[in-house]
Write a protein that binds this DNA or RNA. Structure first.
Lengths: 181, 181
DNA sequence: GTCTATATACAGATAGAC
DNA sequence: GTCTATCTGTATATAGAC
């Protein structure tokens, strides 16, 4: 668990930012290196290939998810409300990592697709015990997926049609009423 | 409304198929032309640029959505059930066009993003009158978004965590119970 | 209307200097 | 550890033959 080199993290930050803001097409090694303030050669010292760079992002994602699962299980307002609310925190490090990974997944990366399926499975395992049954769990998971989808399409810039404030409270109340054990 | 040239439609079919199956990265002019059985030059006669090709896809999408809205409004089992059920028909022409458009949107195409927002607005307008209020409409829309998100990630090949058969019936019952006017 | 050939730009990756 | 220079492949787009 030795702290990773600062330059390595900068490269990962830059890669993630380009993926979130502009999509996979623009997330080239050169563009990533430039945004991170290193040269292409410097980037390739830390990540030996494009694939290694993507793997670095998935590793970062995994760590963040681990912490998120713990937060869901111990949330004061209850797991379902916390889970839905945290599905729409547009500049949370976890949300950025998820959206970046979704961009990779939608461009044919099997590793990224597998990572997203795994996250969803872990969330479902954490939420499941607090719902009334399979259909209720499906409902909660799909609302969360929907929130992520809208976030991913908004891209962090355009305000999407995602409910905020009192609208979000009303949505949570409705979902909990239909699903909470 | 003169019927479009057959070659033009083949090119559009091929472009859509590559986007759905492999993502935006692989949907090059050359790959599209090859899959459509024409040369790159032939493709560029019908669509003068990559942008024109994308615009062609969005036009096709618009026509399909128009028909879908009509089907939602006149559905026998009711608009909400029909809407949710049709959110998961993986090989429907409309669903393929939507997923292809989502790939473009997630790779920085403002036109594709705008098209998806417009579709969502039209759906919400059609569904809204049949729900109990704003939160209920949000719930239905987000479940639909979630189903599309999972379809998009599955990419048509891997079976995703989307409910089928009796599970889908149970989900619809639950959503309608919480939202139907 | 559809083709081949080509111009120009940029992708990922390697070699080797510092 | 980080750089520059370069190899090789492939992208979009244009020109012009058929």
């Amino acid at each position: 668990m030795s702290r990773p080199p600062r330059a390595r993290e900068s490269v990962l930050d830059a890669f993630e930012a380009i993926l979130v803001d502009g999509g996979e097409r623009g997330a080239t090694l050169e563009a990533t290196a430039r945004a991170a303030g290193v040269s292409k050669g410097g980037l390739l010292y830390h990540f030996g290939s494009k694939e290694a760079l993507e793997a670095g992002l998935l590793e970062r994602l995994d760590v963040l998810v681990e912490a998120d699962i713990a937060a869901i299980m111990s949330a004061e307002e209850g797991p379902i409300a916390y889970f839905l609310r945290s599905s729409v925190m547009q500049n949370d490090p976890l949300d950025r990592a998820i959206i970046a990974t979704a961009r990779l997944a939608q461009n044919g990366s099997p590793a990224a697709s597998a990572a997203l399926r795994d996250i969803r499975r872990r969330w479902a395992e954490a939420i499941g015990p607090h719902t009334r049954g399979e259909a209720a769990l499906n409902l909660v998971m799909l609302v969360s997926d929907g929130l992520y989808f809208n976030n991913a399409l908004a891209g962090g810039s355009i305000p999407g049609p995602v409910p905020e404030g009192a609208d979000m409270d009303a949505l949570i109340e409705l979902v909990e009423g239909a699903t909470k054990r």
